[in-house]
């Protein structure tokens, strides 16, 4: 882990309000990158860093790929990065999905919106470790869909949109829960909005381990400032504060206070 100076190789829209940023000079970063980890990005003219998940990382050509939504000041400035412009990427940071524990097993991925981004890298890592991967991904409507082709290389993909304008109409999590009657995974790795996690917690049998990725505004990204608190239920039943950046961002679904 280090603060790496990287250069913008590509930065273009892949869906509505959604961009793909490919950074060069990431050989060392990519070699260490694990599924579900993130980079803490310093964007020119933006004071505080912004955490963005690793959507892909390739040590052979030294590239790091991020997929992000334009939300506010930080991600707007990110969308204006020109080819050749430098950014600082601190990382890889955080504790990601337990890919190694499921080598050769069956894992179902569940992604909603921007949450699909880290699952692209996760699917690849799972596939490379010999896991059998199925991905349930959901978007608002067809304008917001991205990543289905990349994901298709490593996983059996089932796409959903809220209005049915692409793939199946409805929520991806509903689709996944409905398919449990016919098949069962060894684990579920999910990234998406809170209601998706709540539906997963309500419908998924306790016997299937589920891992979810949390988001919180961050300061240091390292575990020092205690700015990125989330509430986790301990074994004693009490609620404790953990750091999304260092203890997560991936936690076991059952321990998270949703």
């Amino acid at each position: 882990m280090n603060d790496h100076t990287m250069r913008t190789a590509l930065n273009y829209p892949v869906a509505r309000d959604t961009y793909k940023l490919v950074l060069k000079g990431a050989r060392e970063f990519a070699a260490e990158a694990e599924a579900g980890c993130f980079a803490h990005i310093r964007i020119p003219r933006v004071l505080a860093r912004r955490p963005i998940s690793i959507a892909d990382a390739d040590p052979t050509d030294g590239t790091l790929t991020l997929i992000y939504a334009v939300k506010g000041e930080g991600t707007r400035a990110m969308s204006e990065l020109l080819v050749g412009q430098e950014v600082l990427a601190l990382g890889p940071l955080g504790k990601g999905f337990p890919v190694k524990d499921y080598a050769g097993k069956t894992v179902w991925l569940l992604g909603g919106g921007l949450g699909v981004a880290p699952l692209l890298f996760t699917a690849r890592k799972l596939y490379e470790s010999g896991a059998s991967v199925r991905a349930y991904i959901g978007f608002k409507n067809s304008h917001y869909v991205y990543g289905t082709a990349e994901l298709g290389r490593y996983a059996d993909v089932r796409s959903y949109t809220d209005d049915g304008s692409f793939g199946i109409a409805g929520f991806a999590v509903k689709g996944m829960l409905g398919d449990l009657a016919a098949a069962r995974p060894h684990a579920v790795f999910a990234c998406g909005p809170k209601p998706m996690y709540q539906a997963l917690a309500a419908g998924m049998p306790q016997s299937i381990p589920c891992y979810i990725s949390l988001e919180e505004r961050m300061g240091c990204g390292l575990g020092a400032c205690l700015g990125c608190a989330c509430e986790i239920r301990g074994e004693d039943g009490g609620v404790h504060i953990k750091r999304v950046c260092a203890d997560g961002p991936v936690f076991s679904l059952r321990e998270v206070v949703l």
């Binding site: 505080a48 505004r217 205690l226 608190a229």
Partner: peptide, 23 residues
């Protein structure tokens, strides 16, 4: 001390706001 509930911190245009709550 467990400190304050999230959200605790945010960047602003020229500074930072925090309410960690002495965790």
């Amino acid at each position: 001390r467990e400190g304050n509930p999230p959200t605790r911190l945010t960047g602003t245009a020229y500074g930072m706001l925090n309410a960690v709550g002495l965790q």
